[in-house]
Amino acid sequence: MKHFAYTSQELFIFSVKTFAAIFRRPFYFTETKEQMYLIGIGSLYLVILTGIFAGQGFALAFSNELADFGAKDYLGRIMTIAIVRELGPVLAALMIAARVASGITAEIGAMKSSNQINALKSFGIDPIQKLAVPRLIALMVMVPVLTIFCDAIAIFGGYIIAVFLAHVSGTMYFAAVKERLIFGNLFIGIIKPIVFSFVIAFIACYKGFTAEGGTKGVGKATTESVVLASIVILVVNFFITKLASTYLKGYL
């Protein structure tokens, strides 16, 4: 319990420091661009695969249920609500956490264990500014972009199932999709990935900077980073959904 409280406090302080560092000079544009490329392009195939199969699976399951009630035409509506508000942001964030958080923690952890972090400090460079901030900014930009891709692909996956297996007309499906692409759903769908990007960046960088015990320690920190980021994403997702259902009721 004491350890949990201490770690939470340290993580919080680290997060505040990292966030504050966004607004301080120098800005590492080259590193930020490089991270955007690595995170964005590198995770794209993963997000596409996740989106298409999740969308298809979801559409398949629901088309059968809706058929029993003669409400197959509602498939597009259900898909939009489920994908844009919940599945898209969560699945994309979990995939990015698995791929990117592990990479960030391993890289920073390895730099720490080989004294490269201390070397940075000895050259008068703030490691948070140089290593954590570019990754945070890259995630803040790329997680929402990848989530939009994931949403679009998942809805398209639903379209394939709707047209070829559930025999819903494509026009009807997209009309239903369009009907539910309203402010409230889109707002939740974009706020969630932004919050998740903070979760992934803070946890992955913190675990990297605090990794101890050589190669074994870096491996342990990497695993912890992915597990913790995934759990926090799911917990935070619940609370955002709860808050949204309370305060955005009129917009959903």
Binding site: S114, N115, Q116, N118, A119, K121, S122, F123, G124, I125, D126
Partner: peptide, 17 residues
């Protein structure tokens, strides 16, 4: 950081980037 700029440090194993 300003003080460190006047001190060169060679770490064990070099600590090259």
């Amino acid at each position: 950081q300003e003080i460190r700029k006047n001190i060169g440090m060679v770490f064990q194993d070099g600590a090259l980037f």
